[in-house]
């Protein structure tokens, strides 16, 4: 199961977020813009962090915003938001966050395998700084397609 598509509408570069909540909302809005989700999914992504803390900050500078599958997921979707100024999520080691990935999938099984694909991209330690500094949408799409060259599929 490959990663969901990453259309231009799901990418926002150098967004100005005042805090983590706004940063996650940008990732949610990008998912909505691409047609993958409705606004309630964005709200649920924020609730996950309210409930469980900043555990979605899974590597230095990178947050993986997501919620459980639900009726507000219209199609599998992926979004990428880079921040003009990194924000703190309250994680003990991985703050500040400059890149927020939004992920939505329709069924739990797909979710697990799609997320695993992200490992193929980000096990390359250069991927997060490259995304954070991406100048164009095409740069982001090129970096995010690296997982397709992975061997564990």
């Amino acid at each position: 199961m490959p990663l969901p598509p990453l259309p231009e509408s799901a990418i926002a570069l150098a967004a100005r977020a005042s805090d983590w909540r706004e940063a996650v909302e940008f990732a949610g809005t990008a998912l909505e813009r691409s047609g993958a989700t409705t606004h309630s999914y964005t709200a649920r992504m924020v609730e996950m962090i309210d409930e469980f803390g900043a555990y979605i900050v899974i590597a230095p500078g990178l947050a993986l915003a997501h919620a459980r599958p639900g009726p507000d997921v219209l199609a599998d979707g992926l979004s990428v938001v880079t921040l003009a100024e990194p924000v703190s999520f309250g994680h003990p080691h991985n703050d500040p966050v400059g890149v927020v990935i939004g992920l939505a999938v329709a069924t739990p099984d797909e979710h697990v395998t799609s997320v695993a694909e992200l490992a193929n991209i980000f096990n390359d330690p250069g991927a997060i700084p490259a995304l954070a500094g991406a100048a164009t949408v095409a740069d982001v799409q090129r970096i995010m397609s690296a997982g397709k060259e992975g061997t564990d599929r």
Binding site: V115, A116, D152
Partner: peptide, 19 residues
């Protein structure tokens, strides 16, 4: 383990398997 059981735990799982 992760909050939802469907997100970040999947990355831990696949990378733990590799290691």
């Amino acid at each position: 383990i992760c909050g939802a059981g469907i997100g970040t735990s999947a990355i831990l799982k696949v990378n733990a398997e590799r290691v």
